[in-house]
């Protein structure tokens, strides 16, 4: 099972395992990682599962679709590595991926 490291805004780390094919959002909510609201359940409708992908993992995490990009664009905490975690499916290649959580979800 690939593992994911979520780092809260205050620095608290959560290293959890996830199923291949599950989104990082599902991996977070299934393991009670705080800071991911995921109100819409993974439909790219709400932008409450915003994460900031660690530089080293950006290429492997893929790129945001147009609609994901639009949701992120007006997020006040948006950084160049921002993604919606519901749009990143976990793969073997992403084993060990590190993502930061923003202070707030909008």
């Amino acid at each position: 099972m690939p593992s994911v490291k979520f780092i809260e805004h205050d620095g608290t780390e959560h290293v959890v395992d996830g199923n291949i094919g599950d989104s990082l959002m599902i991996v977070a909510t299934s393991n009670l990682v705080p800071g991911i609201d995921a109100d819409c359940g993974g439909e790219c409708s709400c932008a409450t599962c915003h994460v900031i992908v660690d530089d080293a993992w950006m290429d492997r995490a893929g790129s945001a679709s147009d609609s994901e990009e639009s949701m992120l664009d007006l997020n006040p905490d948006r950084g160049s590595n921002s993604r919606l975690s519901c749009q990143i499916p976990l793969t073997e290649e992403l084993d060990g991926i590190v993502v930061q959580l923003p202070e707030f979800q909008y």
Partner: peptide, 11 residues
């Protein structure tokens, strides 16, 4: 089909 407008209106 206008997520930017949705996000801006929320804020």
């Amino acid at each position: 089909n206008s997520p930017r407008e949705f996000m801006v209106a929320k804020q």
